[in-house]
């Protein structure tokens, strides 16, 4: 219940934050809302020497429209995702998924940047950003770089962030009105982690699915795209039966874990069923 000692700084700007992180090296950790980090600290599963609190950097908060995309500041809270008018209008998948994350009190503190940088494959947002084809804006001592979501999650709770780098924003596409979406979260109790989650977006055209993108939660050490199911869905009739068929390929190429919440073969089964359902909902199939 009691964290080990650490030093703490609260930089006043992104530049100062990057400097502090770079100075702290491997033993420095960013804290924003702290909702992923504080449980680890309390259980003494993490022992940073330095916490760099970026929570006060208000320029990293909020959603902006840019050409063809939306830029979500890393400090935007999960609660804010559920209510943001831009997201609700143009990226409903994020807004909807956010309502299913943790609980209200946690959502008030937890940030999108924290959730992505934490890179827990059981977390919901990594698969969502992956399905959206989003990218991550990263500021470091060398300046800013943009990384596609597929390249950001490199291993179990590991990202391509280097020491000294700070995730500052997430860029997701504006989806037009012909796109539908669904996040299917399958969990044992309301506040427990997903056994499997399926994030799907689908573009519908003439009663068919023109294009689908699917991200899977907890089907491997990193969030993964269900590419076989995406291919199967493309061109399929927008019907429950056809999309169920497409969903049956969702676990191809995945290597889900076996743990307390579910065995690998059950996860595979769930991924198939839930992908069919998510696609059907995203495509507006009856």
């Amino acid at each position: 219940m009691i964290p080990a000692r650490f030093d703490y700084v609260r930089p006043g700007s992104v530049e100062d934050a990057v400097r502090a992180l770079a100075g702290g090296g491997d033993d420095a950790r960013v804290i924003a809302g702290g909702q992923s980090l504080l449980p680890l600290l309390r259980l003494r599963l993490a022992f940073p020497d330095l916490l760099v609190d970026v929570g006060g950097l208000s320029e990293l908060r909020g959603v902006r429209e840019t050409a063809g995309s939306l830029e979500i500041g890393a400090l935007t809270t999960i609660y804010e995702l559920t209510r943001d008018p831009l997201l609700t209008a143009h990226c409903g998948l994020l807004a909807e998924t956010a309502t299913l994350i943790a609980d209200p009190a946690v959502r008030h503190r937890a940030t999108i940047g924290g959730a992505l940088a934490h890179a827990d494959p059981a977390g919901d947002l990594p698969a969502v950003v992956l399905a959206l084809g989003g990218s991550l804006l990263i500021r470091g001592p060398e300046g800013e770089r943009e990384v596609r979501a597929g390249d950001f999650f490199t291993d179990y709770m590991t990202t391509s962030l280097s020491p000294g780098e700070l995730l500052v924003a997430v860029r997701v596409p504006r989806l037009g009105g012909d796109w539908g979406f669904r996040y299917e979260k399958f969990r044992l109790t309301a506040q427990s982690w997903a056994i499997v989650g399926v994030a799907a977006v689908a573009r519908r055209s003439n009663g068919h699915v023109a294009e689908a993108r699917i991200g899977l939660t907890n089907m491997g050490s990193v969030p993964v795209r269900a590419t076989a199911a995406e291919s199967a869905a493309a061109g399929a009739e927008a019907s429950a039966a056809a999309l169920r068929e497409a969903g049956s390929r969702a676990d191809e190429g995945t290597s889900p874990p076996s743990d307390l919440r579910g065995s690998a073969d059950y996860r595979r089964h769930l991924a198939r069923v839930l992908t069919g359902r998510a696609l059907a909902a995203a495509a507006g199939a009856s």
Binding site: G34, A105, R109
Partner: peptide
């Protein structure tokens, strides 16, 4: 959630906030 308080008007779990935050 036993430790829930309002911080600047919204609920937070006070075990999950550092005093310095």
């Amino acid at each position: 959630g036993a430790c829930t308080v309002l911080m600047n008007g919204v609920s937070v779990k006070s075990c999950s906030v550092l005093a310095v935050q």
